[in-house]
């Protein structure tokens, strides 16, 4: 049995030699030889395939690593398509702003300081829609907002020192404005009320250039 195998191997080798030397045109032997050649060559091909696959995987991993590091290094500033507007926990979003409605009460100065401690300020509104939203969400309590004046003879200004455009008339005889269900009212700053803070939402923070000026 072993001898037979050895003999077959020898014959095979002999035939290969013959083909290389003298018999390239024999059909039947040629086919057999082709089959054997393929079987002989396939290990090398497999090895090549393995090498190619491994190289491709390594390149993919490296490329992905680079992509991730680049993405982390530059928080998407140029294209903000995947950005979402989010507000911190406990705040509520409307338009490009986040609003915080306090549970505690305090005077106007305390309220403004509390907002600043939250990296924000007493609420400003830019439109009637925004004002109506605040009135709807404030509940039954009155809330300080960011309007104030030096005395009843002075004009109203916001906490950022811009002049109030009298979009909505204020009523009352105080120096600090608050929101009641009837609209904007004023009282003396040392009285105690709840308050509303506001700050821009995360989308506005991330994409200052894309912010719609309207």
């Amino acid at each position: 049995m072993g001898a037979a195998k050895i003999e077959e191997a020898c014959l095979g080798m002999l035939k290969i030699d013959l083909t290389a030397a003298d018999c390239p045109q024999e059909g039947e032997m040629g086919k057999k030889l082709q089959a054997k050649c393929l079987s002989v060559v396939s290990p090398a091909k497999l090895l090549c395939c393995y090498r190619v696959v491994i190289v491709v995987l390594i390149v993919a991993v490296v490329a992905l690593s680079v992509a991730l590091s680049v993405r982390k290094e530059k928080p998407v500033m140029e294209s903000c398509e995947p950005c979402y507007a989010t507000c911190p926990s406990g705040w509520i979003g409307f338009g490009s702003k986040c609003f915080y409605f306090s549970e505690d009460v305090g005077n106007w100065t305390f309220s403004q300081s509390s907002c600043m401690a939250l990296d924000s300020h007493l609420a400003l509104f830019d439109s009637l829609e925004e004002l109506n939203f605040l009135k709807r969400y404030k509940g039954p309590s009155n809330h300080w907002i960011g309007l104030h004046r030096a005395s009843t003879e002075h004009p109203w200004i916001w906490t950022d020192n811009t002049k109030y455009n009298n979009m909505v008339l204020t009523r009352g005889g105080g120096e600090c404005a608050y929101l009641s269900e009837s609209g904007i009212r004023s009282g003396r700053g040392y009285t105690r009320r709840k308050w509303i803070c506001n700050k821009p939402n995360s989308y506005t923070v991330q994409c200052p250039l894309v912010v719609d000026p309207g």
Partner: peptide, 29 residues
């Protein structure tokens, strides 16, 4: 190969992962 595949899947996961949206809540008075 197995290690490479694992690394690849982890990296793809990182890329695909999106920041979670914080849920806004209003305290009802």
């Amino acid at each position: 190969l197995i290690l490479l595949l694992m690394g690849l899947s982890v990296l793809v996961g990182f890329l695909v992962q999106k920041p979670p949206i914080e849920k806004c809540s209003v305290a009802v008075q």
